[in-house]
Design a protein around this nucleic acid. Structure first.
Lengths: 217, 217
DNA sequence: TTACTTGAGTTATAGGTTCTAACCAGAATT
DNA sequence: AATTCTGGTTAGAACCTATAACTCAAGTAA
């Protein structure tokens, strides 16, 4: 890589780093081109040499976030032990990742930025994260899809490059994701704040319910 | 009520109605005081006679939203039939309410507006919505709380004015809410868009899982 | 070495936002 | 009839995004 390009990349990274800080402090609306520039010791318009516009910067933040998210889940799912243990590890990593930067979690999975379209590249990364979750599914006997949902789920499994998984495993993976996301999105939005209930306990209970859910059915 | 006050209230309602339109069209950021004023045939600053600031307007939108939300769930939960039937009705009403105005759903339960503090009034309304969900819980034998979570949940039950419910019923109610919210929040954020899976089917399956979840345990 | 091109910064500016201040007209009250 | 209150106006401050025009330094090529 060119020397110039190296500096350029460095500047981009710095801008994104500061943007994440602003995000953590003041939410999405706090990500201001001028404010980021000021923190970098540069005027606002200078940043337009590096990002087409504010949306492009946000999009990169989202892309990078997905990448990091998928890496984290993949690493956690790669631990040893029973499927249940690996689910616990993955779920724990998921919660830690969300709580470490709540605003970033919401940037990825919360209110969509109006007019924002997910670039194809992030979709493949999201698939990688889902693959990590699916890798914690216990073994299952393959049988014919029963019902419309089963068929759609099976088709989805093929679409994301997981043709070896049964509909039940795929559906279970979806449940893991949607249920844990339900808890996490409410927790990061502070919806449990005044209930006096420790979200960590609720989360753990849900993970165990997911383990039990597989056994019982 | 005074004639003056009546007009005043009418103007406030109109502003909120238009704000909801803007919300549906352009998201939270699209709620602009100037734009609302223009649609009302009035300049922007005129609205500051009616709302202290933009945040106050948003807060009222949230309060009204909670009210409507609680009304909807309460009505749905008041139908007859078995507990399972009433859960199905309530869950169906919940999804319809969310999909009828996705942005409003996210305004209530999605990314928190930075610096926004829920007024006490909305908390009691949220409790009313939770009561509707809890009213669909099947009967249960009372027994001593087992574990830290059970105790916290029991205390929460007392706090929200539901001392007659068992920890298991309360926890089940929380699961209903968090699981359905998990699905809905992802659906309104378009996260299932490219999977080819019909969110309605996924939702129905989750409701049935919640019914079965009670039986099995 | 000199001339030219490119890159990265600047300021100025347009048009948008929220919100305050000052002002004005009409209605209600005293 | 005089005064106060209410709801509107315009002007303007302080932000925001984004573009245009300009400057200066660094790299490249003759």
């Amino acid at each position: 890589m060119d020397r110039r390009q190296q500096y350029r990349e460095q500047t981009r990274e710095e801008a994104k780093r500061i943007a994440l800080d602003q995000l953590a402090e003041h939410g999405t609306a706090g990500i201001s081109v001028n404010a980021i520039g000021k923190r970098m010791g540069v005027t606002g318009p200078a940043l337009y040499r590096y990002f087409a516009n504010r949306d492009a910067l946000l999009t990169e933040l989202i892309s990078d976030g997905y990448e990091d998210f998928a890496d984290t889940l993949t690493a956690a799912a790669a631990t040893g032990g029973t499927p249940a243990d690996r689910l616990r590890a993955t779920a724990g990593a998921l919660r830690e990742w969300a709580l470490a930067a709540p605003h970033r979690y919401l940037l990825l999975f919360g209110t969509p930025v109006p007019g924002y379209e997910a670039p194809a590249h992030t979709l493949t990364t999201a698939t990688r994260a889902m693959a990590a979750v699916l890798s914690t599914a216990p073994a299952d006997d393959r049988r014919a899809p029963a019902g419309e949902l089963d068929e759609q789920v099976a088709a989805w499994g093929v679409g994301i490059g997981q043709p070896g998984l049964t509909p039940r495993q795929l559906h279970w993976g979806l449940q893991v994701w949607t249920r844990l996301h339900g808890l996490l999105s409410l927790e990061v939005a502070n919806q449990f704040a005044l209930s006096g209930i420790d979200p960590a306990l609720l989360y753990r209970a849900e993970v165990e319910a997911l383990v039990a859910c597989w056994e019982s059915r």
